[in-house]
């Protein structure tokens, strides 16, 4: 337990130290890579709540990532054009305030997770995987065929959204925002998984019949976890859109769902900081190997295979030497 805490602090500390070090050496690009790792890590932390702690293998979390991204893009583009997003039933103006956009992104992603979760949680196993995938693909094709916000080409916005008192264009300041939100999400996950709710969620993963026999309905518990998970991933999507100042249907595609899952599996399923380590390794490999060969993902595949076969606890499991903890 204590050892796990140390590892979590080390992982998070390394990420922050990398960004600060790169900033001091004037390596703006590396700061941006660290920011990307923080954002992907945040998405992984969100998925981990459902997948790791709840045992809900969702192959559709790109839906929430993309929704967060599109909410950000849509608000920003309307802020730039001055046209309201909605006039009926109420007037909703665009915005370029992150503090206003984030709650919108999280609420939108949370609502989508509520609908998708309510339907897909009636299935289990491979059917659950397929149903979540199907919902995400529906949104993907919807985004492609909706010309208003760029369709297949995606939607660019030229100015990064603003945060009071900070210059969000400065890479290290934007990193600080993303890392703070990642830290808060980790804290939230740590608290929630130790609570009554966390106890029930993890019990339902391990033995659903027994959980029912003590008077707890797994469905409501799992749906709550799924919605919280979707909201965190939605926030990550909002940050990712702002990082690139661009959203496209790719954020909603099943590749994205798979990548988020890879962060979790690489780092360690059901480990607090596992997805952060997984995302950082992923970005590092992409950066180092991507320059060597366009086929770097084949090597990533080998690494994943090795992890799944020989170290099911992921990278964190290798360090702590244990497979999983409750």
């Amino acid at each position: 337990m204590r050892r796990d805490m140390t590892i979590n602090l080390v992982i998070f500390g390394l990420l922050v130290a990398t960004a600060i070090g790169a900033h001091l050496m004037g390596e703006g690009f590396t700061v941006t890579l660290a920011t990307k790792a923080a954002i992907f890590g945040l998405a992984g932390v969100g998925l981990n709540l459902a997948l790791g702690y709840g045992g809900l293998v969702s192959f559709g979390h790109a839906a929430f990532f993309g929704i967060g991204g599109y909410v950000t893009g849509i608000f920003a583009s309307h802020a730039a054009s001055g046209q309201p997003i909605l006039t009926l039933p109420f007037t909703l103006a665009g915005s370029n305030e992150m503090l206003g956009i984030w709650p919108m992104a999280m609420v939108a992603a949370g609502l989508a997770a509520l609908v998708i979760g309510a339907l897909s949680l009636r299935t289990t196993g491979v059917y659950f995987i397929m149903v979540t995938l199907a919902f995400a693909q529906m949104l993907f094709y919807f985004a492609i065929s909706w010309p208003r916000y760029g369709g297949e080409d995606g939607l660019s916005f030229y100015v990064r959204n603003t945060f009071p008192g900070l210059n969000t264009f400065d890479p290290i300041q934007y990193f600080a925002i993303c890392a703070t939100l990642l830290g808060l999400a980790l804290l939230f996950t740590a608290v929630v998984t130790q609570s009554r709710f966390g106890l029930a969620l993890q019990a339902a993963r391990q033995n659903s019949q027994r959980t029912v026999a003590v008077g707890i309905r797994p469905y409501g518990i799992r749906l709550t976890a799924f919605v919280l998970s979707g909201m965190i991933v939605g926030l990550a999507g909002a940050l990712y859109a702002d990082l690139n100042r661009f959203v496209s249907p790719a954020m909603l595609s099943w590749h994205m769902s798979g990548e988020i899952m890879v962060f979790v599996i690489l780092g360690g399923v059901g480990r607090l900081c596992g997805p952060v380590a997984g995302a950082a390794i992923f970005i590092l490999l992409e950066h180092l190997l991507g320059g060597v060969s366009d086929y770097w993902q084949a090597l990533l595949g080998l690494l994943l295979l090795a992890i799944v076969l020989f170290a099911p606890g992921g990278l964190i499991g290798i360090v702590t030497g244990s497979r999983r903890h409750a």
């Binding site: 130790q194 609570s195 009554r196 709710f197 029930a200 391990q206 008077g215 707890i216």
Partner: peptide, 28 residues
């Protein structure tokens, strides 16, 4: 629940009996 301690297993049953398994923030 195999990965839970004896205490956690019984706490789960206590939580179930209380009808409140939704406390999100308080450490169990």
């Amino acid at each position: 629940i195999p990965d839970f301690t004896v205490l956690q297993n019984v706490m789960l049953a206590v939580a179930g009996a209380s009808g409140n398994a939704f406390g999100l923030l308080r450490p169990a």
